[in-house]
């Protein structure tokens, strides 16, 4: 038995060492999750507006175009439960916080990141932002969470090609969706819209509770909560499941009426955004982001009492 265990240990030791080496190498690669964590620590005290949410706000709201001191804490596929954790971390250390922008997209009320194909991102939240969304041991390590191809590509791009993987600006905005690289809008809309409204609706009540808790928490300090549906192209919103959209609209309106500090702004079909403002059917590009950020800034000016 001892001999067996010794040999197993000797056999697995090189594997464990290589795995540990690769994990450490991966953690040395700069990433937007670690960057955002550093931004929270550096800027929380002076931040007036905190932007939460998924890629819709990550790429869609650029704090540089806002008159308030804002910080974009959104990230790709970030769901409401993650937003709640970020706000929890941020809240006590943000004495000047006056408003929080929480995007309500077609999928927001029906998904949680740990239950989707994007669950691998849980490892990033756990390692770099100290947000533990699941007890799954796998999501404590990048090497076990990322798809092998993505993991190898990440290391190769950084160490062999010297590419900087960071895409966030110093205020947290995702800067890569440039107008000059925009995708064909009509091609991208329908497929994404169907995928975004394909989740079963049974997560609605727990996600609604999260929003209500956030609204409650903010209300205690008279901080405004803006529930925002970002602009999308017709090829996207025309293909969304109507039942999902109806539930979303009703839920947001209900929460809005419950608490005086909560405001629901639906810009999904807003006509002031033209095709040239979109990167793809459901994301704004840098031009669209400028437009949306300025619009929100004006709105916040009217909501925030001096």
């Amino acid at each position: 038995m001892k001999n067996f265990l010794k040999k197993i240990l000797l056999f697995t030791l090189p594997l464990l060492l290589v795995a540990a080496f690769l994990e450490l190498a991966a953690r040395k690669v700069p990433n937007d999750y670690a960057l955002k964590r550093a931004l929270f620590d550096d800027q929380s005290k002076e931040t007036e507006v905190l932007i939460l949410g998924s890629s819709h706000t990550y790429f869609g709201i650029n704090p540089d175009w806002m008159t308030q001191k804002a910080l974009n804490a959104a990230n790709v596929s970030q769901t409401l439960n993650v937003d709640a954790c970020i706000l929890e971390q941020f809240f006590a250390d943000a004495p000047n916080l006056q408003a929080v922008i929480l995007p309500i997209s077609a999928f927001s009320l029906f998904t949680r990141i740990e239950e989707t194909s994007e669950a691998w991102r849980c490892a990033y939240y756990a390692i770099y932002q100290d947000i533990h969304l699941t007890n799954n041991f796998q999501y404590q390590f990048e090497i076990l969470s990322l798809a092998p191809n993505s993991f190898i590509t990440k290391l190769r791009k950084y160490y062999l090609r010297g590419r900087n993987p960071l895409i966030s600006s110093p205020t947290g905005w995702g800067s890569t969706f440039r107008s000059e690289y925009a995708l064909e809008l009509d091609d991208t809309g329908a497929t994404v819209a169907k995928a975004h409204t394909s989740a079963p609706v049974n997560s609605l009540s727990r996600n609604k509770t999260i929003i209500e808790q956030i609204a409650d928490q903010l209300n205690q300090r008279d901080i405004q909560l803006v529930l925002l549906t970002t602009p999308t192209h017709s090829s996207y919103y025309n293909h969304l499941d109507q039942y999902h959209m109806q539930l979303t609209e009703e839920t947001c309106r209900e929460i809005e009426t419950q608490l005086p500090n909560t405001h629901y702004i639906n810009l999904q079909t807003n006509s002031s955004f033209s095709p040239s403002d979109f990167y793809d059917a459901n994301h704004l590009n840098n031009l669209g982001a400028k437009k949306l950020s300025e619009k929100l800034s004006q709105l916040l000016n009217s909501l925030i009492t001096p």
Binding site: F11, P14, L15, S117, A147, P148, I152
Partner: peptide
């Protein structure tokens, strides 16, 4: 034999499906 086992383990790591 050991080389073969290591190869299988590496293949499992690199090409594991979802």
């Amino acid at each position: 034999r050991f080389l073969f086992y290591y190869l299988i383990i590496v293949l499992i790591f690199l090409y594991r499906g979802i």
